[in-house]
Amino acid sequence: MQPIKEPREKDDYADRTLDCREAIGAKVQQVTEAAMHAGWTREEIKAAFIEIADHWKTTDHIV
């Protein structure tokens, strides 16, 4: 598995959030493809990602 691309700068900059989304997007796609290969539907996977993100907003851990 390829490493996730690092931010362009150490400190905050204008497109940092966009850069982060692009950096992890490929990994999310890989997870999605693996989950679909295992038998989950795209809609189930999307719902799971949303639920994980919602949970993560209120806790310090993902699951």
Results as ranks from 00 to 15, higher is better:
residue 13 Y to S: 02
residue 54 D to E: 13
residue 54 D to C: 06
residue 15 D to Q: 09
residue 3 P to Y: 03
residue 61 H to P: 00
residue 55 H to M: 00
residue 5 K to L: 08
residue 22 E to W: 14
residue 41 T to K: 02
residue 8 R to P: 06
residue 40 W to Q: 05
residue 26 A to P: 12
residue 23 A to H: 01
residue 45 I to Y: 04
residue 12 D to S: 07
residue 6 E to T: 04
residue 4 I to T: 10
residue 7 P to I: 05
residue 46 K to D: 14
residue 61 H to N: 08
residue 35 A to V: 02
residue 27 K to L: 10
residue 60 D to K: 09
residue 4 I to A: 06
residue 54 D to H: 07
residue 43 E to A: 06
residue 18 L to M: 10
residue 58 T to N: 13
residue 15 D to V: 09
residue 46 K to H: 11
residue 58 T to R: 13
residue 13 Y to E: 02
residue 37 H to E: 12
residue 21 R to I: 14
residue 55 H to D: 04
residue 49 F to L: 14
residue 10 K to Q: 03
residue 23 A to T: 03
residue 57 K to V: 06
residue 9 E to N: 08
residue 51 E to P: 00
residue 59 T to P: 01
residue 36 M to S: 02
residue 61 H to S: 06
residue 34 A to K: 14
residue 52 I to F: 15
residue 53 A to W: 09
residue 8 R to L: 12
residue 32 T to K: 03
residue 49 F to T: 06
residue 48 A to V: 04
residue 34 A to S: 08
residue 49 F to Y: 10
residue 16 R to D: 08
residue 11 D to L: 10
residue 21 R to S: 13
residue 30 Q to I: 01
residue 21 R to H: 11
residue 47 A to I: 05
residue 20 C to Q: 13
residue 27 K to P: 00
residue 45 I to P: 03
residue 43 E to D: 07
residue 47 A to D: 11
residue 40 W to M: 14
residue 52 I to M: 15
residue 11 D to K: 11
residue 24 I to W: 01
residue 40 W to L: 13
residue 60 D to M: 09
residue 4 I to K: 00
residue 55 H to K: 05
residue 40 W to S: 06
residue 14 A to V: 07
residue 24 I to Q: 00
residue 48 A to P: 00
residue 14 A to G: 01
residue 33 E to W: 04
residue 49 F to E: 03
residue 5 K to I: 02
residue 25 G to L: 14
residue 16 R to E: 12
residue 12 D to P: 00
residue 44 E to L: 05
residue 43 E to M: 04
residue 50 I to N: 03
residue 53 A to S: 11
residue 41 T to R: 03
residue 48 A to Y: 02
residue 38 A to E: 15
residue 20 C to W: 15
residue 6 E to Q: 11
residue 34 A to V: 04
residue 19 D to R: 00
residue 47 A to N: 08
residue 5 K to F: 03
residue 46 K to C: 15
residue 20 C to H: 15
residue 16 R to I: 10
residue 41 T to S: 15
residue 27 K to F: 05
residue 22 E to S: 07
residue 35 A to H: 02
residue 34 A to I: 01
residue 40 W to V: 02
residue 11 D to P: 00
residue 21 R to M: 10
residue 47 A to V: 05
residue 44 E to H: 12
residue 53 A to D: 09
residue 24 I to R: 00
residue 8 R to M: 11
residue 14 A to T: 04
residue 8 R to A: 13
residue 9 E to C: 11
residue 7 P to R: 03
residue 16 R to S: 11
residue 30 Q to A: 15
